[in-house]
């Protein structure tokens, strides 16, 4: 038996919208720790890891570890039927081939029930070791989204370079080239507007902008994004979900040969 109740139901909508651009089908795992997911895109270049900790839910019951294969577009269709202020309860049963979503309006005058078919998913899971990164950039998530969108209209790849001057995003395409430098800036009214650059070693890596733009679908989840870079590792683009967990995207770099 599995039962999860989330008063801030819109959060679940945002989570699904954040990842469905990258993966179509995914296996959600439920355990005492929380509701989690790890899925790779079809070309095995990018990976999304989601964690919603059990403590973040208003009610969390998970009697046994359970994996549920879901089509994210179908999930989005169901969740779109919930009002933005609705309370969402998610239920599943061992051995069942469906899950159910219940949406309650804040005043309890409308209650909707939806049942969604599960799917069999043969998912490959990767072990992601804890790592020390050469550089960690924290910046407003809307700013990062804007940069990826702007550069995406000029080129296909972005070079992200971190030096003690700040972080530079560069691209080159048929019509020309672009460089955007963001300097460390902590002198702001609100902490979420700050840009910080933590650098152990300078690093410069190239990534496909198509994937970066896909990651920015998670922007509504968090005011800040953390970009962790190391020349030996895929980049990690992390959106923290307040009091609940995170959505992390991993992307393998492009290399010159």
């Amino acid at each position: 038996m599995l039962e999860l109740r989330l008063v801030q139901g819109s959060l679940l909508k945002k989570v699904v919208d954040a990842i469905r651009d990258l993966v179509n089908d995914a296996s959600f795992d439920c355990s005492a720790t929380g509701f989690s997911l790890q899925a790779m895109d079809s070309s095995h270049v990018a990976l999304v890891a989601l964690l919603l900790r059990s403590e973040g839910f208003d009610h969390y019951r998970c009697d046994r570890n359970i994996s549920m294969g879901m089509n994210l577009n179908n999930m989005a269709k169901m969740l779109r039927c919930a009002g933005n202020d609705d309370i969402i309860t998610f239920k599943g049963d061992d051995g069942s081939d469906t899950v159910s979503f219940m949406f309650e309006s804040p005043t309890q005058d409308k209650i909707s029930d939806f049942e969604m078919k599960l799917m069999d998913i043969d998912s490959e899971r990767l072990g992601i070791p804890e790592a020390k990164y050469q550089a960690i950039v924290r910046m407003p998530s809307t700013e990062f989204a804007r940069i990826c969108k702007d550069l995406g209209s000029i080129g296909d790849t972005v070079v992200i370079s971190v030096t003690k001057e700040g972080v530079k995003f560069s691209t080159r395409g048929d019509i020309g080239s672009a460089n955007i430098v963001c300097r460390q800036n902590t002198d702001v009214d609100k902490p979420e507007q700050a840009t910080t650059v933590e650098m152990n070693d300078p690093v410069s890596l190239t990534f496909a902008l198509r994937y970066m733009n896909s990651f920015t679908k998670a922007t509504p989840l968090s005011n800040q994004v953390t970009i962790s870079l190391s020349s030996e590792l895929p980049v990690v683009v992390e959106y923290k979900i307040a009091e609940m967990g995170y959505v992390r995207f991993y992307l393998a770099p492009k290399i010159e040969e």
Binding site: S43, A46, L126, A252, K254, E256
Partner: peptide, 14 residues
């Protein structure tokens, strides 16, 4: 030429 790496080269399968 620039080639796209895949994740399998960095992370192990569980």
């Amino acid at each position: 030429d620039i080639f796209q790496e895949v994740l399998a080269g960095y992370f192990d399968s569980k």
